[in-house]
């Protein structure tokens, strides 16, 4: 057994150098040309730096809310709820979110609430909400910020991202970008 294992050991070390060493360094080298040198795309606003792809928790009335998160949007980790719809505890959690949404958004009827704004994403870091979920919050934002309704509606329309190439995948709204634009409104 000793003899056939020595070539295998040498082969292991050589492939280790190639796949873990050379490949990684080559991809890393090319990624230096990528946005922000491959350290993750960032957005800078008012002297603060945010990661574009990492969602943030928005619970205050003056901001468009993001989706519920199983990890409170702390990207030190990631996680979903892993709850099944047949779980009574889970049904109660979603019911509580619906109630809270209705309290903070008077005038909205329950049947209008889109499912994404009261359910947790897979990663707990979802940067987007559905266009419906954004539109439903326009009234609240306009009231709290004393803005004309049309202006906020236009802002949401402007920040509704189209499907890939116009026909592949869902439409969505990037919550962070929308809220930054909201803060920039005078």
């Amino acid at each position: 057994m000793k003899e056939p294992l020595l070539p295998a050991l040498k082969m292991t070390l050589l492939t280790l150098v190639l796949f873990s060493g050379v490949y990684t360094l080559a991809v890393w080298g090319i990624a230096q040309l990528a946005p922000n040198g491959g350290e993750g795309e960032i957005i800078t606003h008012n002297g603060k730096t945010y990661y574009e792809n990492v969602g943030q928790q928005f619970t205050e009335d003056r901001y468009f809310w993001s989706r519920p998160s199983a990890v409170d949007y702390n990207a030190a980790g990631s996680g979903g709820s892993n709850k099944a719809a047949s779980n009574p505890d889970y049904v109660a959690t979603v019911q509580a979110r619906i109630d809270s949404f209705l309290v903070h958004n008077p005038g909205v009827s329950k049947a209008e609430i889109p499912v994404d704004i009261v359910t947790a994403s897979g990663s707990g870091l979802d940067p987007h909400i559905s266009p419906k979920a954004a539109q439903l919050q326009v009234q609240r934002i306009a009231r709290v910020r004393n803005l004309p309704l049309e202006k906020v509606q236009a802002l949401v329309a402007e920040h509704t991202e189209k499907p890939l190439l116009g026909f592949l995948g869902p439409e969505r709204v990037h919550v962070l970008k929308l809220n930054i634009a909201l803060d920039n409104l005078k």
Binding site: I113, V115, D116, S121, I129, P170
Partner: peptide, 13 residues
């Protein structure tokens, strides 16, 4: 509520 987006628990927008 409005479930037209499908089963979104555990899914990304």
């Amino acid at each position: 509520i409005d479930g037209s987006a499908g089963n979104m628990e555990g899914k990304e927008t």
